[in-house]
Design a protein around this nucleic acid. Structure first.
Lengths: 155, 155
DNA sequence: TCCATTTGCTAGTTTATCTAGCGATCTCGT
DNA sequence: ACGAGATCGCTAGATAAACTAGCAAATGGA
């Protein structure tokens, strides 16, 4: 994913290395989600939906079926079926929206939170262990870099 | 994905921030692939296969249908169909393995390489632009951090 | 040599997505 | 206040893509 323009200076090599690391990270994420998908006996989309719900919950943001459809890039029809599956498996509940009677709010069940952290928890702790070994300044630089990369790949 | 244990020191906050950045990065990657999937009119699995082939080609590694099945975590039967699709759309070719007459080697066509860089090229240049603004020491730290994160999430 | 294993494929089934369209509800201009 | 148009989530039916089971050809070690 990086390296088809010949590097010439040490800086070029450093840039190439970091972009290769970014690519490797993407692959590692794919494989991790693949593994967890297998462990939880879910398909990729349903797991991605669950991840979104966890993230949004931590930010105290409500999630509608429409939000899910946009994030997952599937139709709202597919989203209805997806919610049927997650509801039947006890991972989510459809709650009425307090103000808009057409709308729904999707909330995670305790079982889903438990299952999620059962499967992600060990890796999250391991990631925290990695981050702990860096200084505050280094972490700030890394955070800034990752943030900037996010902005250019998903503007 | 980070932050359910109350942080108390500046370092805790820095760790929490970087883990949130990692999570956001993962989300941004998902959305980027989703967008490219739409632009290239491919499904997620086929695009993931193409990405794997590009990465392996840059490392000069041969890819068999079996390798694809393992990486994508789909059956070899589904992989055969996937290769039929990619072959029909002109993205790949099945070549005979030089030594094992049962096996195949999957190679990208020039068209596939072109299409891939048409869709990823702008973002890759943008990422390079971001990385260029960091010092060699910073880039080394970031590369090391990302590498360590990869090891713990995909051991 | 011989037999278990590996490789990639096909056939048929199941699962998940899409398009099209519906009723209910909200929003906004008049 | 009220009607037009937009939005929300859902259903039905069609299409696409995954799965399981099993096959022949080729390999490789006992």
């Amino acid at each position: 994913m990086a390296g088809w323009a010949a590097p010439s200076t040490p800086h070029d090599y450093a840039v190439m290395d970091v972009l290769q690391a970014v690519r490797a990270f993407s692959d590692a994420m794919d494989r991790m989600y693949g593994e967890i998908k297998g462990d939880m006996e879910m398909n990729a989309t349903d797991l991605a939906a669950l991840r979104m719900l966890v993230v949004r919950e931590q930010r105290s943001k409500d999630v509608s079926p429409h939000d899910l459809a946009r994030h997952l890039r599937i139709s709202t029809a597919s989203t209805s079926k997806l919610l049927d599956r997650l509801s039947a498996s006890g991972h989510i509940e459809r709650r009425p929206h307090p103000r808009d009677r057409r709308a729904r709010i999707i909330v995670l069940t305790d079982e889903a939170r438990g299952a999620f952290f059962t499967h992600f928890g060990a890796r999250l702790r391991a990631m925290r262990g990695v981050a702990d070994r860096y200084s505050d300044e280094e972490l700030a630089t890394i955070t800034r870099f990752i943030g900037e990369i996010c902005e250019v790949i998903d503007p």
